[in-house]
């Protein structure tokens, strides 16, 4: 055979052996189009599956009104005495609204421009006024009813709340970025610290953001360590040199030790504002142990002035308060109330 014959024969054999099934290829092309469409649909469906349960759970959450049994939670707050002591001198600066309130003391006067939540021992005051607020604690919880005694918000507080900072001009301060994205890991979460509002100047109606939240430089392992002074980082304005640290949040203590209603409520009432809404992810971590077997949707675990940590997902994601509110379609009030209800869970 010549070279040409060989090459022709090879070519002929290849052509003869080659499959003649273009229809299969055509079918596969059509199938792949469908698959692509299906994949898109599946992705959309999966996204809906992820989103809908959470939203529906949140939406279906019924917020119980506060009852006397809830008010008792405040009794376990360990640090109220310090608050009281410090705020006694300033009691005139706050005006209780509730007529039934007997002893009221200003706990703190936290404020954040747009997304603030405030707490009292008998409940969480959830208004988010543009002005500074002072929150009072009703220490006669037994008199409380479902209607949470109102906490007075005085936009024109003029007296100093904390002696150390009384003379400081109350200027709007730069917020320090906080731990919004940190996972709730006990050893990593810094203790939020919030400023007692400096109130030696008049606060006009449009006066905003008089409080500074920052993290206490010290670490604590228990929620009941009381009020401690919090040194101010050098990056902060001098006007904020002295701050009052509420009970530093110890997630370690909370997650590993705080499994009772009292402990939880103590945490709630002693720390700043961080909300965490959570569902049991069955991950076996200490946090889920608190909720194990309970019918809950979310729980306020902790909060600070600037952040809400919403651990609703299986991955303990944290979210900003804006994101939480946007996702849940809830108000701050709703979250706080839900958190208080969540404290009813007792292991």
């Amino acid at each position: 055979m010549t070279e040409k014959n060989i090459l022709d024969k090879i070519k002929a054999e290849c052509n003869a052996s080659a499959p003649d099934n273009f229809s299969e290829i055509e079918n596969q092309i059509k199938t792949s189009k469908k698959n692509r469409r299906n994949i898109i649909l599946k992705i959309s469906a999966a996204a809906a599956v992820i989103a809908v349960p959470f939203l529906s759970v949140i939406a279906s959450q019924k917020f119980k009104p506060m009852g006397p049994e809830d008010i008792k939670l405040a009794e376990v707050t360990a640090d109220t005495s310090e608050y009281t002591e410090e705020t006694d001198d300033n009691s005139n600066t706050t005006k209780p609204v509730s007529e039934k309130e007997t002893e009221e003391s200003t706990v703190t006067v936290p404020h954040v421009e747009s997304q603030m939540a405030h707490k009292t021992e008998n409940g969480l005051k959830t208004e988010l006024p543009p002005q500074s607020q002072s929150i009072t604690k009703n220490q006669t919880q037994k008199e409380s009813s479902h209607n949470i005694p109102s906490t007075e918000i005085i936009p024109t507080t003029t007296k100093k709340v904390h002696p150390d900072i009384s003379d400081k001009p109350h200027t709007s301060s730069t917020r320090k970025p906080s731990h919004t994205t940190k996972p709730v890991v006990s050893s990593e979460i810094e203790s939020p610290c919030h400023t007692i509002l400096t109130t030696n100047q008049e606060i006009s109606d449009n006066h905003t953001s008089q409080c500074i939240t920052e993290h206490c430089p010290y670490e604590t392992t228990s929620a009941a360590q009381g009020t401690q002074p919090c040194s101010v980082p050098q990056t902060l304005p001098k006007t904020d040199t002295t701050k009052e640290c509420t009970v530093p949040v110890s997630f370690t203590g909370y997650h590993t030790e705080c499994t009772t209603k009292e402990c939880i409520s103590e945490q709630l009432l002693s720390v700043n504002l961080i909300f965490a809404a959570s569902q049991d992810d069955h991950s076996g971590n200490s946090k889920s142990k608190i909720y194990e077997g309970k019918d809950y949707n979310y729980i306020v675990t902790d909060y600070d002035l600037y952040n809400v940590q919403l651990n609703y997902s299986r991955h303990s994601e944290t979210h900003s308060i804006d994101e939480v509110l946007k996702k849940t379609k809830l108000t701050i009030d709703d979250l706080i109330e839900a958190g208080l209800n969540a404290t009813k869970i007792e292991k």
Binding site: K11, N15, S17, F22, I25
Partner: peptide
Amino acid sequence: EKIYNDMKGCVYG
């Protein structure tokens, strides 16, 4: 389809 019919033998080989 056209290019398939033209080149399938070569590809197959």
